[in-house]
Amino acid sequence: MTSYWDRITDYYNENRKTPSERTKNSLQHRWSDIQKDTARFCGFYAEIERKRESGKSEDDKVKDALQMYQGLVKSVFKFIHCWLILRYEHKWQAHLIDMSTPNDKEHSETLQATEVQAVEAMKDKTLPPKISRPIGRDKAKRMKTSNTASNSTAFLQVLQNMRSDRQAYEERVEQATDATEGAISARSERKLAIQEQQLRLQERLVTLQEEREENLVMSLDLDKMTPWAKDFYLMKQKEIVTRKTTQHASNNEE
């Protein structure tokens, strides 16, 4: 028979919006985190409600509870959407009762003082305080209906803050990307300039080499050469003179 968590795992993977699947252990661990953090937030919200501060709206109470959570737990409450779903559910309230009710061993009169202190020291100070028995199903439905608008407002405010943070992060990433691209472009331009300079230098060296060879040909004493060598170098000298004359004329025209 397929277990409860096996069915949850199959349902999640069939309806997931991400490319990778998640295992049963991964989903159980995720739900455990949601339970623990949401229970903490419930405790903080209950503490805010017990203060009964005048003029405080539902949104104000949610914001105060979020600030209390961040101040005591030292992290942002990430499951506000889960809390909005769970807060009036009968099973969730029963779960909070079970979490906040100490077991018999902790309240046994036979415990020694040192054992009591050890148990108290091990308690998580950020978990919610003891919560009264959950309200009835009908009353919970009425409260859920009457607070829909305020809950939606609080949820939208949290989503707006999350979008603003995300937008600011994306802007920082875009600025960093632009700066990186600018640095890469500058390096590429410098590299291209160096390559062009090296090419001009190589062209200059080739030109100097050609001029040395031409000067050597022009300085030869043709009278001391054999007739065929004399004819060859005489032709070379004429080519050099013709080319130089053409280049000089072209430069004067420019």
Rank of each mutant, 00 (worst) to 15 (best):
M1G: 06
W5V: 01
W5E: 03
D6F: 04
R7E: 11
I8Q: 03
T9E: 13
D10T: 14
D10P: 00
D10K: 15
Y11C: 04
Y11V: 01
Y12G: 11
Y12R: 06
N13W: 06
S20E: 00
S20N: 02
E21A: 08
R22P: 04
K24Q: 15
N25C: 07
L27E: 04
R30D: 08
D33T: 12
D33Y: 09
Q35R: 15
K36G: 00
A39K: 12
F44N: 05
Y45P: 02
Y45A: 00
E47Q: 13
E49L: 14
K51G: 04
K51E: 15
K51R: 13
R52M: 04
E53L: 09
E53M: 03
S54E: 14
S54Y: 04
K56C: 05
A65D: 03
M68V: 08
Y69P: 01
G71P: 01
L72T: 01
V73G: 01
V73N: 07
V73T: 05
F77H: 04
W83G: 07
R87Y: 12
Y88V: 06
W92L: 02
Q93K: 13
D98M: 11
D98I: 14
M99N: 07
N103Y: 00
E106P: 00
H107T: 14
E109N: 12
T110A: 12
T110K: 15
Q112K: 14
E115P: 01
V116P: 06
E120R: 11
A121I: 01
M122P: 02
K125L: 03
K130A: 07
I131H: 02
P134A: 06
I135P: 01
I135T: 06
G136K: 02
R137Q: 10
K139N: 05
A140C: 09
K141T: 07
R142E: 13
M143G: 03
K144T: 00
T145V: 11
T145C: 07
A149C: 02
A149W: 00
A149K: 08
T153Q: 08
A154K: 04
F155Y: 10
F155S: 06
Q157P: 01
L159C: 11
N161T: 09
D165Q: 12
R166K: 15
Q167K: 05
A168V: 11
A168H: 13
E170S: 12
R172E: 13
R172H: 12
Q175P: 02
A183M: 10
I184H: 02
E189T: 08
A193M: 00
I194C: 03
E196P: 00
L199K: 06
L199V: 04
R200L: 07
Q202D: 02
Q202S: 03
E203L: 14
R204E: 14
V206R: 10
Q209H: 11
E210I: 05
E211L: 12
E213H: 08
V217A: 09
M218A: 09
S219Q: 09
L222M: 05
T226R: 06
T226N: 08
P227R: 13
W228G: 04
A229C: 05
A229T: 10
K230I: 05
L234F: 10
M235Q: 14
Q237K: 10
K238P: 02
V241W: 02
T242V: 03
T242Y: 06
K244L: 05
K244E: 08
S250E: 15
S250C: 09
N251F: 11
N252I: 15
N252A: 11
E253V: 15
E254P: 02
